[in-house]
């Protein structure tokens, strides 16, 4: 059952914020189709009475005391920034920003 069209790949790539070349979209559409077909079988065994497991080990209530630790030095914070100014990260304009 083929479900993943080129358009679908393009839509998901936009959601994942990844620019894809046209040839990549073509190739991924084909590959994902095969992969999704083979993994869709989880549906068959996952009956409604089976609860979902999100964490491998059953643990609860892991909390931290509300006590500060020293912050990273600003120089370290910004050391890897592609661009910085006035102690802040400089990023390209954000659409829709006031």
């Amino acid at each position: 059952m083929s479900t993943i069209s080129r358009d679908e790949v393009a839509r998901v790539a936009a959601l994942a914020r990844i620019d894809l070349r046209e040839d990549e979209v073509d190739r991924l559409a084909g590959e994902l189709d095969v992969i999704v077909d083979s993994i869709a079988r989880v549906n068959e065994v996952a009956t409604p009475d089976v609860p979902a497991t999100s964490h491998p080990l059953p643990m609860t209530n892991v909390f931290r005391e509300d006590v500060p630790v020293p912050a990273l030095p600003v120089a370290d914070v910004l050391a890897a920034a592609p661009d910085a100014q006035d102690g802040r990260f400089a990023v390209p304009q954000i659409l829709g920003e006031e």
Binding site: I39, A40, V42, N43, V45, A46, T47, V50, P51, A52, T53, S54, P56
Partner: peptide
């Protein structure tokens, strides 16, 4: 269908 079902398989 996908993630939710996979988490159930995990239980199994």
């Amino acid at each position: 269908a996908y993630y939710g079902s996979a988490q159930k398989v995990r239980t199994l």
